[in-house]
Each structure stands twice: as C-alpha cells, then as structure tokens.
Design a protein around this nucleic acid. Structure first.
Lengths: 146, 146
DNA sequence: CATATTCTCCATTAACATAGTAGAGTATAT
DNA sequence: ATATACTCTACTATGTTAATGGAGAATATG
C-alpha cells in the first residue's frame, strides 16, 4: 500500500468531517487550514470524494461539505482504495498475473498476497467512527493534561 | 509497501541465484531470460544488489553472478527495502512526522504504523531459503503431476 | 598474446504519476 | 444585487520509473 499526499489529504478531510458529523457543513477553507494543505489541491480531492459518494456539499453562503454517510459506515480502506488505488504491491500482482511469465514469480506473488491481506485486515476493519473515538481520546488527554 | 518493477526484478534475480546456490555462477543473460526481463535493466539492478552486499560477480568467460550470502541469511524484507525503500506508506510517516501539522494526523499515522508493522512481520520473517523451499514444492508437484 | 565473453559504468530518453496552480463559471443565502 | 463557496477544466512543474545505448575493463581459453 502506498498513500499519496492526495490520499493523505482525503483521509484527513473525511476524518475532519467525521469529527463534525451532525454539526452542519464545513467549508473547504476550514478543512484546508486544519489539515495544513493547499486549498486548491484539497478542492480536487473533495470533488473526487463527492463523486465516490463519501461526501456531499452545499454551495453558496453557508455552504460547505459534509459526510454522505455515518462515520461508522465508512471504512478507512474504502477511501484509501478509492483515492490511491489497490493496496496490493502492484508490480507483482497487476493485471491478474497475466503478464508474468517468470517461473519463480509465483512464490513472490504469494508473499505479496499475504501482505495485501494483512493490510486489508487492518484498513477494512477500521471505520472513521473508530478514528473519531481515537482522536477523542487524544483530545481528552490533552484537556486533562493541562 | 510498493514494489516497483526494479524491486520485482531484484527479488526474482536473488531467488534465481538462491535456487542455484552452490552451483557456480549464473549469467545475467540466463537470469534475464528466466525472469523475462530486459537484460540491460536487470544489469543495473544486479549492480545495485552487488553494492548492497547481496550478490557477488565474476567477469569474463565463465563469469556471472552468485549470492554473497546463504539464502537462509537473506530476508525478503532486506532486498525490498534496499531496492524500493521503506515499507511504510510514506505520505503519512515520512521525515519522522516532522512536517505534519494537522491535529488529526496522529490517528491516521497510527494506522499506517500498524500496516507497516504487519508488513514487516511478513517480509522480515521470510528468507530466500524459505522461498526456495516453496518453489521446490511447486516443482515437485509439477514433476509428479505429469 | 589474441579473442570472445561477461560484467562495469555512465549517460540519455520516454513515459507516467503526482503535486500544485489558475481562472472562469454556477448555485445560494441574505 | 452581491458576496460566498462549491464546480469544472486546463495547465505546469517536478520527480520517478522503465528502459536503452555504448564504451570500457576483467578474465578464461587456445
């Protein structure tokens, strides 16, 4: 698995929206500022996320973005795959093994498959609600540690 | 983790040399043919592998490549990291978290860390001897199935 | 020693992906 | 009417990856 900046920004944006779930919309400006990313770049990412059915938006004054589904119904793996593609280490798995003529490749592919399954086992079993809970814990710690 | 063609070719070459361990040298031509990769490209990869201490070489007639260490002493993860870099999904982990100002990023990094650890748990616990054994199993099956 | 063979090294190219920018346009609350 | 905020398309710059080409150096063999 490789997470690009694009993917990283997408995850941060969805997490931010999850943290503000049921609290109205969030402007792209706020999202960009909190994630410390370029507004115009995040714009593209959010547009993609909208096409992917992860977020909705409202235009005009008081407009902004909001999650299209409940945070508990969005798995981390969904967003990662949607933005950054398959989690498999592609060089050995791509195109359903069709292009691979090497007699030794099967054992390497086997390992790649193991890695992909381990990765999926993690990112497909964590929802954004889980991340919100983790962040909430961190926030509480911050509050009480002052 | 992302394995490039370069990395894939490196793994195949090392595996091939592991399969011919203690059987003298193997020419780049043979390695390239069996792995079905361009000779000149594999050349560069083998040169890197030599610099990394994975293989040795002999020039001239009867020259070729051979493993620098016993297959049981070369872990898959070593080669992957040497050729393709860190297995961490770098966008979120790079540069020791220094550049990451987002307040939400820690939970995403945490997941990335989990993925990286799961990946390491696999590739750092498989040696090329293990791969040889797996390949040998496949070969035996082939023989007996005819 | 001459020669074929094989690795060594450096330079270059082409293709592609990624990150980021620019600007005109559309919807909407007030 | 207007300011605000999303929408959409296009573009640029940069870097990485894959692959090629060619000259040079080492070595076994006759």
């Amino acid at each position: 698995m490789k997470i690009t900046y694009r993917g990283d920004y997408a995850l941060k944006a969805v997490l931010d929206l999850a943290l503000h779930y049921n609290q109205g919309v969030v402007t792209i400006h706020d999202l960009a500022e909190r994630a410390d990313v370029p507004v115009k770049f995040l714009e593209q990412v959010l547009l993609d996320l909208k096409k992917g059915g992860f977020v909705n938006s409202r235009r005009g004054i008081n407009g902004g973005y909001l999650l299209a589904r409940h945070p508990k119904d969005i798995k981390l793996g969904e967003v990662i795959r949607f933005i950054d593609g398959p989690v498999e280490p592609i060089a050995c798995i791509e195109k359903g093994y069709a292009g691979c003529k090497s007699v030794y490749s099967c054992v390497i592919r086997q390992v790649c498959k193991e890695v992909a399954e381990a990765t999926s086992g993690i990112i497909d079993n964590i929802t954004f609600q889980d991340l919100v809970n983790r962040t909430g814990g961190a926030k509480r710690e911050l509050v009480y540690s002052i």
